[in-house]
């Protein structure tokens, strides 16, 4: 068996999710190679070569891959993936975009968002927003899989010394082009991999009030998230959404503030180690999953929390 992991990165740094996908690959077994596709991504390839347990790094460095357009990336991966028994990528918005396209080009099924490896052909994944857990077996010769990064402990970023090999093939499907992007700039840790997350819901009432959460986050070194209700209401941008259709997080500590706990939100955070809920409605479903619940007005409790943490 040999496994090709498609690196998740932003052309300058390797995302930690890649190390979690390598961990999933090691759970399957066999040689693990990593493909870094991007533009001016040599530094990422060097970082990938150092990741513990990586056998070889393939680099496709070309403008066609600079913005990770699925049309181009999928053709590259479908070709570079020939001969591998498994092709794995993180189930972030990039992997979710291009991997099903790879599977279709190879005429195989995709197994989405796995949380456990049972054997080389059998995997465990949540369905129905995590209300059911399915064990599925693939009969395809090549397994195309997206991995939920929070479900696998990242392998160390150091310890490997893989060979780096350049791929010359350029795949430009000519179907799509990049127009622009609006990236939220933040000095706080990445939501998907942060050790502590503090999220706000509809109870925050408006976007300005999220500053209160940001202040607590800065004391704790935490990332700030939100429920779908808060995003839909326009309080905060979409990339902060935690839940079934947003980001899946599993930090050491998750603090839910003014979040009622809709099932779709719980699907995105219920694997957190410790959950704290602050809500003035003591009947809120969030308390059913919280390790520590505080029934209180968040506009009093959150400033107090900041003060108490600074002591």
């Amino acid at each position: 068996m040999s496994i090709l992991v498609i690196a998740e990165h932003d052309n300058s740094s390797l995302k930690q999710a890649t190390q979690s996908v390598v961990a999933a690959a090691k759970a399957i077994g066999g040689d693990v190679d990593v493909l870094v596709a991007g533009e001016n991504c040599g530094g990422v390839a060097e970082a990938a070569a150092k990741v513990d347990g990586v056998n070889k790094v393939l680099v496709a460095d070309n403008a066609a891959y600079g913005h990770f357009l699925a049309e181009n990336l999928s053709e590259l991966v479908a070709e570079a993936g020939k001969g591998y028994s498994h092709i794995l990528a993180a189930a972030g918005t990039t992997g979710k975009d291009f991997m099903p396209r790879v599977a279709a080009l190879l005429d195989v099924a995709q197994i989405s968002d796995i949380i456990r490896v049972e054997s080389e052909d059998t995997f465990v994944r949540p369905i129905y927003a995590g209300n059911a857990i399915a064990t599925v077996k693939s009969s395809d010769s090549v397994k195309v899989i997206t991995v939920r990064p929070t479900a696998f402990d990242a392998v160390p970023a150091e310890g490997g010394s893989a060979a780096v090999e350049a791929l010359d093939t350029v795949k430009d499907a000519g179907l799509s082009s990049f127009v622009g992007e609006e990236k939220a700039e933040s000095d706080r840790p990445d939501l998907a991999s942060a050790g502590i997350v503090i999220s706000g819901g509809r109870g925050m009432q408006n976007g300005d009030n999220f500053k209160m959460l940001e202040e607590v986050a800065d004391v704790l070194g935490a990332a700030v998230g939100a429920s779908r209700a808060a995003v839909d209401a326009g309080f905060v941008p979409n990339d902060m959404q935690v839940g079934q259709t947003g980001k899946i997080v599993a930090p050491q500590l998750y603090i839910a503030v003014g979040i009622s706990g809709a099932i779709q939100h719980l699907a995105g955070m219920s694997d957190s180690k410790v959950i704290v809920a602050i809500n003035k409605d003591e009947e809120a479903p969030i308390f059913q999953v919280a390790d520590y619940g505080l029934v209180a007005d968040l506009f009093e409790a959150v400033p107090q929390l900041k003060e108490e943490l600074q002591k």
């Binding site: 195989v108 099924a109 197994i111 059998t122 949540p126 369905i127 995590g130 209300n131 059911a132 857990i133 399915a134 064990t135 599925v136 077996k137 693939s138 009969s139 395809d140 219920s270 959950i275 704290v276 003591e282 308390f287 059913q288 999953v289 919280a290 390790d291 520590y292 619940g293 505080l294 029934v295 209180a296 409790a301 107090q304 929390l305 108490e308």
Partner: peptide
């Protein structure tokens, strides 16, 4: 191409405790 071998309910998370105030939390 995929066969479902089994479908299980997720491990239930137990509700914890209520704390009285921020200091206790």
């Amino acid at each position: 191409r995929l066969s479902t071998l089994k479908v299980e309910a997720p491990a239930a998370r137990q509700a914890g405790i209520k704390v009285a105030d921020v200091a206790e939390l």
